[in-house]
Design a protein around this nucleic acid. Structure first.
Length: 449
RNA sequence: UCCGCAGUAGCUCAAUGGUAGAGCAUUCGGCUGUUAACCGAAGGGUUGUAGGUUCGAGUCCUACCUGCGGAGCCA
């Protein structure tokens, strides 16, 4: 239910954004946005305007505005689009510190039935209304933090000598397992899949640029229904030629501490909206604790003996969610667990020369139960070893010939990692659900809106 | 795929097996400083679907549907 406004004359006026109001105190400005909330008290109304950069309260008195303006503001519903002309005034009573004394107002569209009210709502309902929920303070704050994380990550790599060289999204074969691929039926005589990692292509670009990274969407057809999973998520993957496991761990901790510092500096307001304890982010500083898989297993077995864990963890397995939480909760910083058994890691992982059963891999486990945010390691360099591994993992060698070429022509030690942007965002924001960290989440049982 | 939980007004939730209710939202009225404003009034329901038990089912039973949480797997 909506009524169109007839005259849009004032839309031509130069717009001031709410975030810039401090520079316009005492001056007249034109604000263009949407009604966040309206309160009225007889002969005074308080329209709260939202414009994407902030929220500000306007004040209109019946005897200081024209009858037309007064009438236009009466009974205006949430998210009505409108333009306000008024004078900026510093006011301690206002949440943002400023108010606007309304001189003129132009309603572009009156709205009366906006579905998201200022009261509580369930997640299912809000997710169905995601296209509108994005306008809320909370979504706005989370996505602003995401934006800053992406920006910080890219700046970090750009300033560290990395070249952005994106990996393809349509691929002919799996990078890791074949069970979690989305199949695309388009290329003649051949099946294609949506990428589940840019990893293998990064190894090619690292050999071309020395240090390269890709940043893009990733698809996993996992039947996972947890707060840590999306079927479509964004991943940043750096890869370095002439680099070791040690180099990758150092890169990961430098990047994460850099990102945390950026979020603290640029998104203080948003962290406040999200009621995030900033001390948790302040502790994300170099160096991060490092734990050998053997020692992690010992820690888990002691945990079981002390009654903190239900089942006794045996050497050789991969950690389950409760195991991860138990270990990472013993540290107040991100924890780097390295030297996993090769059997639980991907085929391209390099082996520990001293102990062939160990892979030179590392997982970075975020504190507070956020789990694995980074996975990476050193890659195998030997052509023969990789051929064996492909066979062992029952992967078709023809599909990987181009990859094997990287070992035929100038094979060097190299290493890299992948970080899930959404998991990182959920952690920095301190929110329960990863699905709030992406504008339009795709999950098992959710492809709309 | 497996285990557990839930579906009642637009939304969030109540309702011993006995007349289906409240707050918010909406509509109307009141209020010159409201902060999820407040006060008064009105409209709003095939209780997820289909069966069953019962004099009587929102409530008990069965199946299905939808969603949520977790496991496995992963970032």
């Amino acid at each position: 239910m909506a009524t169109e406004s007839k005259s849009l004359e004032t839309t031509k006026a130069a717009q001031t954004y709410i975030s810039e109001l401090s520079r316009h105190v005492g001056k007249e400005v034109v604000l263009k946005g949407w009604l966040y909330n309206l309160r009225s008290s007889g002969k005074i109304v308080f329209p709260q305007l939202r414009d994407g950069t902030g929220i500000v309260q306007g004040v209109a008195l019946k005897n200081t505005v024209t009858p037309e303006v007064w009438e236009a503001l009466q009974g205006l519903g949430q998210e009505s689009s409108l333009i306000i002309r008024g004078t900026v005034r510093a006011d301690e009573r206002a949440p943002g510190g400023f108010e606007v004394d309304v001189v003129d107002a132009q309603v572009l569209q009156q709205v009366h039935d906006y579905p998201i009210t200022p009261k509580e709502h369930g997640t299912e309902f809000l997710m169905d209304q995601r296209h509108l929920w994005l306008r809320s303070r909370r979504s706005h704050a989370v996505l602003k933090v995401r934006h800053t994380i992406v920006q910080a990550v890219r700046n970090f790599f750009d300033n560290d000598g990395f070249t952005l060289a994106d990996a393809p999204i349509l691929t002919p074969a799996a990078c890791e397992g074949t069970t979690t691929l989305f199949e695309v039926d388009y290329f003649e005589g051949e099946k294609a899949y949506l990428t589940q990692s840019g990893q293998l292509y990064n190894e090619a670009t690292a050999a071309a640029f020395g240090k390269a990274y890709c940043f893009g969407p990733t698809f996993r057809a996992e039947k996972s229904k947890t707060r840590r999973h999306l079927t479509e998520f964004w991943m940043v993957e750096p890869e370095m030629a002439y680099a070791s496991l040690e180099d990758v761990m150092s890169l990961a901790e430098r990047m994460l501490s850099n990102v945390a510092a950026r979020v603290l500096a640029d998104r203080a307001e948003e962290l406040k909206v999200l009621e995030r304890e900033t001390s948790k982010l302040e502790s994300i500083r170099i160096p991060f604790p490092r734990l050998h898989y053997d020692d992690a297993v010992k820690m888990l077995q002691e945990g079981h003996a002390a009654g903190a864990l239900e089942s006794r963890f045996e050497w050789g397995g991969d950690f389950g969610a409760p195991d991860e939480s138990y270990i990472s909760n013993r540290f107040n910083k991100p924890l780097m667990v390295h030297h996993y058994p090769a059997s639980v890691k991907a085929f391209y992982m390099a082996r520990d020369p001293e102990r062939a059963e160990l892979a030179l891999g590392v997982d970075v486990l975020a504190p507070e139960g956020y789990g694995e945010v980074i996975g990476g390691g050193e890659r195998a360099t030997s052509l023969e070893f990789l051929k064996e591994q492909l066979a062992l993992h029952k992967l078709p060698q023809e599909a990987f010939e181009w990859y094997l070429d990287l070992r035929r022509y100038g094979s060097v030690p190299h290493a890299g990692f992948g970080m899930g942007i959404e998991r990182c965002t959920a952690w920095m924001c301190g929110i329960e659900h990863i699905r709030e960290t992406i504008p339009f989440p795709r999950m098992l049982y959710r492809i709309r809106p």
